[in-house]
Amino acid sequence: MVLDEEQLIQIRRHLHTIPELALHETMTHEYLLQVVRSFKQDYLEIRETPELPTALFVRVKGTAPQRTIGYRTDIDALPITEQTGLPFASQHPGVMHACGHDIHMTVALGVLNYFAEHQPQDNLLFFFQPAEESDYGGKRAYEAGLFAGKWRPDEFYGLHDNPDLPAGAIGCRMGTLFAGTTEVNIDLEGQGGHAAYPQDANDTVVAAAALIMQVQTVISRSIDPIQSGVVTLGKIRGGEIRNVIAGHTRIEGTIRGLTQAMIESIDDRLRDLCAGIGRSFNMKVNLELNQGGYWPVENNPQLTKFFINYMKQAPNVDFVETAPAMTGEDFGFLLAKFPGTMFWLGVDDDSQLHSATLTPQESAIKRGVDAITGFMEARMNKEE
């Protein structure tokens, strides 16, 4: 039986009550497994893996497959205390689906349920992915070799909900949808000393100030102004007391870029600047760059063109061409390994993503399911 709108909403509300943090999505995993096992099983194969215990893979066998189409949804939540006042609010203190992953999972279950009832032409692979908000579960799955053999998708798709779009609208663009991100940690190691005797010390606060000012030139003077990139140094900690010269200072920040080449270019400039400050101030400057799986979400040109053309022409689909966003998404790593497309699903809310008051419009769920199942059927009918 195909799930109706009310059943989908009830699934979403239950998922909303049991949010869990990255790599700890045990209740979520069990509930997803319960729902999938309630579907018609004739064409389904369910896979759990010890390498990533909270992940869930479901394969749908096609009638005459030309390809395996992958669909990914993220399943983790955020360390945020919910303030929506909903009767189905989070039952886990300090944890909330404040990024809409409960919507994501419900749409994926709706699409899977449809194809469990209507056997697809192509093979389908559904990946319920843990650890999107942190710990990059997509990269973990890839590096564990979980996308091999019949579990390897030829192309991959996924969505993210968008409070700024009308409920049920589909948004997408050619090129980059989300920026890639890199964590920046810089430790400056000098020599502490008495404030009255600076000649006997090596002040890391002064060196950090010089470094911070030089970093401001990376975007303004080292990057093509037609391109987009951001370096933000959001935290600095140096010294313990006003009359002691600090022997250690730590700077923490983030890099955002719309292409992997842009991020790597910014990385190189930061390495050069840190090395230069180290030589200029005669101290150790240790730079740590951690990108993990948060690569730019760069949509495949051919597949995305087909996706956009379908959504523009499909009845009952409100398509919106969107601008790139500087937020991060670890689906970017998988799109660097498999061709595919990420897109937005509008949920029409005054609150933004990662807000304690995020309340997506549930009318978006069924419209999202219908749009995606229609697209997948159109994609299966396209000969290579």
Rank of each mutant, 00 (worst) to 15 (best):
P339D: 03
I365P: 09
K235F: 09
M380T: 03
A207R: 02
P93Y: 00
E45P: 01
V297L: 15
L211G: 04
T259N: 15
M96T: 01
H354I: 05
Q91D: 02
Q291I: 01
F307S: 13
L109E: 12
N286L: 10
Q260I: 08
D348H: 09
Y114W: 11
F156V: 13
L109T: 02
A364D: 14
G175K: 08
Y71N: 08
L335N: 10
T254I: 13
T73F: 10
A141G: 09
G171N: 12
F128R: 05
F343D: 06
D349I: 03
K284Y: 00
K305L: 12
P93C: 03
I9Q: 12
E30I: 00
G340F: 02
T359D: 12
F115H: 04
A314R: 11
Y31L: 02
L159H: 12
E384L: 11
L124F: 10
A210F: 14
F126D: 11
G110C: 05
A325Y: 15
I103V: 15
A208H: 02
G328P: 12
L273G: 08
F375I: 03
I212L: 15
T232K: 11
F306W: 10
A169L: 09
P315L: 10
I255F: 15
R72L: 14
N381L: 10
V35Y: 04
V297K: 09
P65I: 06
